[in-house]
Amino acid sequence: MSDTRVDPAGGFSIESLKANPRQARRERLIRDSLGATALVSVFISALIIWSLFSEAWTFIFEVDWGSVWDIGWFPRRGIYDIKTLIVASLIVTGIAMIVAGPLGLGAAIYLSEYARPGVRRTLKPVLEILAGIPSVVLGFFALKWIAPNLVETLFGGPAAGSLLAAGIGVGVLVVPLVASISEDAMKAVPMALREASSGLGARKVMTTMRVVLPAAVSGLMAAFIVAISRALGETMIVFMAGGAAQTAVYTHSALDGSLTMTAGMTSLARGTDNVVGEGLTFQSLFFVGLVLFALTFALNLIADRFVHRVREQY
């Protein structure tokens, strides 16, 4: 070994504790390349913002704003009524939350407060499997099962897809999300609070409703906001089961078919060949994308705040 750090005469100095320069170089190289991989995410964010803005910009400056507030979404003929898409998105999101709120929260309370460990160990993975179901599958289910079996028979709506069918489908999609974040939030409530409540003679219902839920409220808020953001951004279910093709007349009835922001983009982008070069049609895609991105970004930031509050408290 040509390692000269240790004096062959047996002397052991401060020099011998220093890393050998080759090793130090290697350590630095590894640190820097790992750092570079972490920067990739920043780079990706920049790319997303660049791609959205560079096309949306053209749209914002060149569009006749009268066509952005009109009778409906007809991008191929220059009518870009954004309120049609936003209202449909809100309807779908609202229905999704009406479905997912109680189901997700109920499941979370049960798993966190009531279920015996064995039961929990079996039920939780099943919920996680539900979370992993691809949205095309739920889209198929919403169109072929929910629309004819629930929407038509219970609400008298069309069997061929509607905002209601899509909303229920999206609700099913976000149930596991609501459940898992809410459950985490309730698990984070210290056991001492529950014990104190029981010690004062409160029953389990009382402890759960008056102690655990209020203590976990930040996390529950986060769960709902993340779910809303996810529902707004959900694409395939609304595209497949929303009951409209390529264009939509403005509607605020959940039993009609319409296009949400995401479904509008998807139907427009299928066969993008034909979109390029027809006025601002191609750019409108990125304008809607930018609106959606801004909305979900704001929601995610708010949810992030709530999550942090939970961490700080306990």
Binding site: S41, V42, I44, S45, L47, I48, S51, L52, S54, E55, V226, S229, R230, L232, G233, E234, T235, T262, M265, T266, A269, T272, L285, F286, G289, L292, F293, T296, F297, L299, N300, L301, A303, D304
Partner: peptide
Amino acid sequence: LNIRNLAGVPSIVYGLLGLFL
């Protein structure tokens, strides 16, 4: 924070990125 936000960006926005870039 940036990574957490990216995780919440709707998938279709990634599609726009892919289409553009």
